[in-house]
Design a protein around this nucleic acid. Structure first.
Lengths: 155, 155
DNA sequence: TTATATGCAAATTGTTTGCAAGTAT
DNA sequence: ATACTTGCAAACAATTTGCATATAA
């Protein structure tokens, strides 16, 4: 529910971003890149390089790890994806959302990741920063614990 | 200002924690461990293994990386220190504070780390978790940007 | 054509572990 | 004596890079 694929419209917007960025940088549209973009949009949220690699290899087994790695970096650079690194030390990629920034609830039992948005927290956070004369550029707010399912299951 | 060494009293408390834990586990008080505890209490907050290693080697150059590594892990296990991993992927250790949990402002320019505490955020965070039936065990809230000094300097 | 992209394998980075020799109890 | 510790070096895990070959423009 908190993780849904991008609307056709939003997806088109992101493809536009990527295309514009590639044009500006003189980068080329290759078969691998086209495949990786398409699979990335179909992939579950917070996908890892390994996971996406497996997914694209199901279609073309000759794709290399480094190609997926570099393509996801490219997505992050042009704003199509966000890089996230949670507790477990693996980098995950998430499709850039429309509108608001969101944060994460991470289940330490089953690994599920849920997104949440809480403007009141963002507001307080800005107040804290102001108190220290700090200029916020980005932030990370992650809650670790047991998701509803795992809470029920384990007590 | 937000980073001050532990009071003599608090330090004694932490040493007690460590001693009790070591006794319970049958661990031994060695020269290396005594040196590392002492230096850790003198070290700046959010020290890395490398930094603490350099600091203890200034006193005894024969100390190995792994010894510092394992001793800091031990501190974390018994509640004398907290492990933190920020943006840059290096693990840092911080002396366990009295009382409340705190979070961090990290300057992406000079690397300085400031601590903050905001009960209202913690409260909202618990409300968000409750909304999802999520049981919070720990959390990470980090603001990245420019500290007061660097904001002034770079515009 | 020619600069960019790919796939492989090797290099890096930071952390973790195995083991023989040393040491606290 | 015995079990824990140490320091070294090697293993790991995840990411990043160099380079020869392939390919888009």
């Amino acid at each position: 529910m908190s993780v849904s694929p991008p609307s056709a419209e939003h997806q088109a917007h992101l493809r536009g971003l990527l295309e514009a960025y590639m044009a500006k940088k003189g980068l080329r549209s290759t078969e691998q890149r086209r495949l990786i973009v398409n699979e990335f949009f179909k992939a579950p949220a917070h996908v890892t390089i390994e996971e996406l690699l497996a997914q694209v290899r199901a279609i073309d087994p000759r794709i290399g790890y480094a190609t997926v790695y570099r393509t996801l970096k490219l997505f992050a650079e042009c704003g199509v994806a966000h890089e996230r690194r949670f507790h477990d030390g693996v980098t995950r990629y998430e499709i850039a959302h429309e509108g608001e920034h969101h944060d994460h609830l991470i289940c330490i039992e089953c690994g599920s990741i849920t997104e949440f948005e809480e403007p009141a927290i963002e507001k307080l956070q800005d107040e804290v920063a102001a108190r220290y004369g700090f200029t916020v550029r980005s932030h990370k707010h992650e809650l670790y614990g047991l998701c509803a399912n795992c809470s029920a299951r384990s007590g």
